[in-house]
């Protein structure tokens, strides 16, 4: 067990927390040598819609890390102040949720503060403003990157506990654990991989839609190949605008069994 995790850790070290933006052709290159034809076919379909990929380290935090970078990069490029104000209100709501659930303030306050600091810094025009280059640098710096990942883990756990009746059936589908046990063992520890439960909870809590594109070996019975995706759309009543109207996610992640990377549409 220990040896296995040591090997995993060593493998993970080779990729930075957040990689460089690469053309989508680099994805196909991965599967050139003996790759499954279905995968290559799917990558071809993907390349019609997506231009680039940014890889993240496979250390169990890849979903949260991908979300972190994709979100902050979106704000940096769009300079969407309304979105920043909206998400900030949701963050405050998450803070109240954790307080109500009985988390001691000192366990989460530093993580909240650090995320809000990053959010502030991607908005241009102040002394604290940062460039895209600096954002990449910070995302690779453990003392920033891990704090933001942990911030998302707190937010996710708080949302699941707050709406435990809603999440319970989904959690029972994954494991025999109770909601409480699930949060303690599969959400709050660093390095625990994310499932649709985590994604739903984070998307709902922050009110940010997320598109996940699935790349696996599955194909239809008639042999035709298509690439599936799922949009996680935040539920209404969570401080976000409406709920029934279709929101176009500005965050797209590529899911390959066990791992998430960031995708860039054309």
């Amino acid at each position: 067990m220990q040896q296995q995790s040591a090997i995993q850790a060593e493998e993970a070290e080779k990729i930075p927390f957040v990689g460089d933006k690469e053309p989508l052709s680099s994805l196909a290159a991965e599967y050139k040598a003996g790759g499954s034809p279905v995968l290559l076919e799917k990558i071809k379909i993907l390349s019609e819609q997506y231009a680039a990929i940014r890889r993240t380290r496979g250390d169990g935090n890849c979903f949260f890390r991908s979300f972190m970078f994709a979100y902050l990069e979106h704000i940096l490029e769009s300079q969407d102040r309304a979105e920043v104000d909206r998400v900030r209100a949701n963050v405050e709501e998450c803070r109240r949720t954790l307080q109500k659930l009985g988390y001691p303030e000192f366990t989460f306050e530093d993580f909240f503060a650090l995320f809000l600091e990053q959010l502030e810094s991607v908005i241009q025009g102040s002394e604290a403003s940062i460039s895209d280059e600096e954002l990449v640098k910070r995302s690779r710096d453990q003392s920033v990157s891990d704090y933001v990942v942990m911030f998302f883990r707190f937010v996710t756990s708080g949302e699941i506990r707050k709406r435990s009746e809603f999440f319970e059936p989904f959690i029972l589908g994954l494991t025999s654990a109770s909601v409480e046990q699930f949060c303690k063992s599969a959400v709050e520890p660093m390095g625990e991989e994310s499932d649709h439960v985590h994604i739903t909870a984070l998307s709902d809590a922050l009110g940010v839609p997320i598109r996940v594109v699935y790349l696996d070996r599955s194909s239809c019975d008639n042999g035709s190949v298509s690439v599936n995706h799922h949009d996680f759309t935040p539920v209404a009543g969570n401080n976000n605008s409406g709920g029934s109207e279709a929101v176009n996610p500005f965050i797209t992640l590529l899911y390959r069994p066990g791992h998430y990377d960031i995708l860039y549409p054309k």
């Binding site: 366990t107 993580f111 883990r153 303690k184 063992s185 520890p189």
Partner: peptide, 13 residues
Amino acid sequence: LDILKDQWSPALT
């Protein structure tokens, strides 16, 4: 004890 190993979280004290 698991929480002193891989099940530790900064949410614990």
